[in-house]
Simulated assay, not measured.
Amino acid sequence: MRRKWDPKTKAKIVLEGLMGGCVSELCRSHDLRPGQYYKWREQFLKNCHLAFEKPVCPPADPELAEENEKLKQLVGELTLKLNNGNSIL
């Protein structure tokens, strides 16, 4: 049966190796094959720059965007009514 490794554990193991830990001892202590460690390390190093990128905002909810537009339109109409009612000329 294959073990499932969560991303945090993988990162922790890879960082231990990158910080100078003996890879063979590290793999033995985690019951991990060295080949798997090196695959994780390669993936980690290819994607480590992503930690410094701005997070991507999720796409806006279409219903929320529609409601927002309606509210903007209503505020604009009410502002025009207020400005026209207060004109003293």
Rank of each mutant, 00 (worst) to 15 (best):
Asp6Val: 06
Asp6Ser: 08
Lys8Pro: 01
Lys8Cys: 04
Lys10Pro: 01
Ala11Gly: 02
Lys12Phe: 07
Ile13Leu: 11
Val14Gln: 00
Val14Ala: 05
Leu15Asn: 10
Leu15Gln: 10
Glu16Ser: 14
Glu16Phe: 03
Leu18Pro: 06
Gly21Gln: 14
Gly21Val: 06
Val23Cys: 12
Val23Met: 07
Ser24His: 09
Leu26His: 07
Cys27Trp: 02
Cys27Met: 11
Arg28Ser: 11
Ser29Leu: 14
Ser29Ala: 12
Ser29Trp: 04
Asp31Phe: 08
Asp31Ser: 15
Asp31Thr: 10
Leu32Tyr: 04
Arg33His: 15
Tyr38His: 15
Trp40Gln: 07
Glu42His: 11
Glu42Met: 05
Gln43Lys: 15
Phe44Gln: 02
Leu45Val: 08
Leu45Cys: 12
Lys46Asn: 09
Cys48Arg: 12
His49Gln: 08
Phe52Trp: 11
Lys54Arg: 10
Val56Thr: 13
Pro58Thr: 02
Pro58Cys: 12
Pro58Ser: 13
Asp61Tyr: 04
Pro62Tyr: 05
Leu64Arg: 13
Ala65Glu: 10
Ala65His: 09
Glu66Leu: 10
Glu66Ile: 00
Asn68Asp: 09
Lys70Gly: 00
Lys70Trp: 02
Leu71Thr: 04
Gln73Tyr: 06
Gln73Cys: 01
Gln73Ser: 06
Leu74Ser: 00
Leu74Pro: 00
Gly76Ile: 01
Gly76Phe: 05
Gly76Trp: 11
Glu77Gln: 09
Leu80Phe: 13
Leu80Cys: 01
Leu82Cys: 02
Gly85Gln: 11
Asn86Leu: 15
